[in-house]
Computed example of a mutant assay.
Amino acid sequence: MANIRFGSSFADRDLSLLRRHLHLLDSELVPLCLAIKQSGDPDGAGLCDSAEYFIGNGFVAAQRYLTATRSGIGVCAADAFSCAPMVSADLSVAAAINAGANYWKHMEEWFETLGKPAGELKGQAIKTLQQIEIITPWADYTCSNLLASLLGGRSLELSLLVPAIELWRDNLYAMRDNSGSNSLQNRHVVLLS
């Protein structure tokens, strides 16, 4: 779907749908996080796996929004995923979300590859893991750890990513309109807040 811009305002149906989707996922995730805190063995009870599942799917939903938005306004992926806000000097929020989504969608294939003799990850798999490792280790519950890093200590709620995604959209339009000038908002945001 297309975004419609009126000056500095947007009619962005995709963002509205993403926000609703993330709130639905949060309705499962928030009680899971509480249960994790209260459990003596959250891993053994499957609570951490359940939270990882909802978070991974939230990254995929956000990735779909990022891709639809950047392609809809004619910005190439490399430029879009380098657009602010940033979580580090080398990684944008959009690139981190994109990496989280790719990790979630492909990790089973990667584990299958690594389990074969002479199995070695290449190409996009390596790039994805390198991006994730800029802000969190590639370990158990990678999506959960990535979300925690992106949110900088706030509660694990996927909907808390929406303001940064909205800022990214605004910056993407500014990049396109200004042909890449440095007028982007919050160019070096270290953590989302």
Rank of each mutant, 00 (worst) to 15 (best):
M1A: 14
A2K: 09
A2L: 07
A2V: 13
R5A: 08
F6S: 13
G7C: 07
F10K: 00
D12A: 10
D12P: 05
D12V: 10
R13F: 12
R13I: 15
D14E: 14
L18N: 11
R19F: 15
L25M: 08
L25G: 02
D26V: 04
S27R: 10
P31N: 11
L32G: 06
Q38D: 04
S39K: 12
G40A: 03
D41W: 00
P42C: 08
D43S: 11
G44T: 09
A45K: 13
I55G: 03
I55M: 05
N57R: 15
F59H: 07
V60M: 06
Y65F: 14
T67P: 00
A68K: 10
G74W: 03
V75H: 11
A80M: 08
S82L: 04
M86E: 07
A89Y: 03
A89N: 06
L91I: 09
V93G: 02
V93M: 04
A94C: 10
A95N: 13
N98T: 06
G100V: 11
A101D: 10
N102L: 04
Y103N: 07
M107I: 15
E108N: 13
E109H: 05
W110E: 07
T113V: 15
L114F: 06
G115F: 03
E120Y: 06
G123M: 12
A125N: 05
I126E: 10
Q130V: 13
I135K: 03
N145Y: 07
N145E: 12
L146Q: 10
A148P: 00
S149N: 11
L150E: 08
L151H: 05
G153Q: 06
L156Y: 02
L158Q: 09
S159Y: 10
L160H: 12
L161F: 04
V162F: 05
P163I: 15
E166S: 15
R169N: 09
R169H: 08
N171F: 06
R176L: 08
R176E: 07
N178E: 09
S179R: 08
S181W: 11
N182I: 12
Q185Y: 07
R187D: 11
V189H: 11
L191D: 08
L192Y: 01
